[in-house]
């Protein structure tokens, strides 16, 4: 028990003293997951709109499929991306395997379904009378969509936040695609919070793992607080 407490205090110390390797891993984690969230936002929100506002054959099926993929296992995404970018794969020539870029791609794919699905829910959640009101006021298509986004904005922001949370906390794809490498340069290394915790723990560096774990939890906490503030307004 004493050892755990001791490790905990050492972890706090690592954070307070801004230990360079802790900071580097944290920063890399944030950059990779922010990038993935940004790309996924640009794809998922318009996609959610397209699915929601159009009536087409098989729409229910598509929404069902998207919702099923909320639970997409991260290792499946890892496997999927791996076969495409490994040396023998169709995109092998790009030499993306074990790079931060590949991790961004994997995380984007991972969070696309949940962000698309939640965008659809956000739009569906707008009162039909509000939609009629917008149309009745004489809005053209562009104005209609603009006002619809404004009405659904809190739910859409929540979708983005949730996507980010899932991206930064996943470990399966990150380790398969990134490989948890540590090189001399910041941009060629792929060690992020989750993969580092996994590796350092198995190597017995409990205090280091704990420090990264506390940071990971704090990020989740901050995201949650921001989300709550947004929704209360």
């Amino acid at each position: 028990m004493n050892e755990i407490i001791q490790a905990f205090f050492q972890a706090i110390e690592l954070i307070i003293t801004l230990d360079p390797s802790v900071m580097e891993i944290t920063l890399r984690s944030l950059i990779i997951s922010f990038s993935a969230t940004l790309i996924a936002t640009v794809i998922a929100i318009p996609l959610g709109f397209l699915i929601q506002i159009h009536e087409f054959y098989g729409k229910k099926m598509v929404i069902n499929l998207v919702q099923t993929l909320y639970a997409l296992p991260t290792v499946i995404v890892g496997l999927f991306v791996f076969v495409f970018i490994s040396r023998a794969g169709p995109f092998g020539f790009l030499r993306l395997l074990f790079t931060p870029t590949a991790m961004i791609i994997a995380q984007t794919i991972l969070i696309l379904p949940i962000m698309t699905g939640l965008t659809i829910s956000a739009l569906t959640g707008v009162d039909p009378t509000i939609r009629d009101t917008i149309r009745s006021l004489g809005a053209n298509t562009r104005q209609y969509l603009g006002l619809l986004v404004r009405e659904a904005r809190f739910a859409i922001i929540a979708a983005i936040m949730l996507g980010f949370s899932r991206a930064i906390s996943e470990v399966g794809a990150a380790i398969m695609i990134g490989g948890n490498t540590q090189t001399s340069a910041f941009w060629t290394s792929t060690r992020v919070l989750t993969t580092a915790i996994s590796l350092e723990t198995s190597m017995g560096n409990i205090e280091f793992s704990m420090a990264l774990g506390i940071i990971l939890l704090s990020i989740a906490l901050v995201v949650n607080l921001v989300m709550m503030r947004v929704q209360q307004r």
Partner: peptide
């Protein structure tokens, strides 16, 4: 103009609600 049975407002201020149709125009 049409007023619906269910009283609905946009999630913004009273002023912006009333201004919505004019902004559209």
């Amino acid at each position: 103009g049409m007023v619906f049975q269910k009283p609905v407002v946009f999630s913004t201020t009273v002023f912006e609600n009333v201004a919505a149709g004019l902004r559209i125009r």
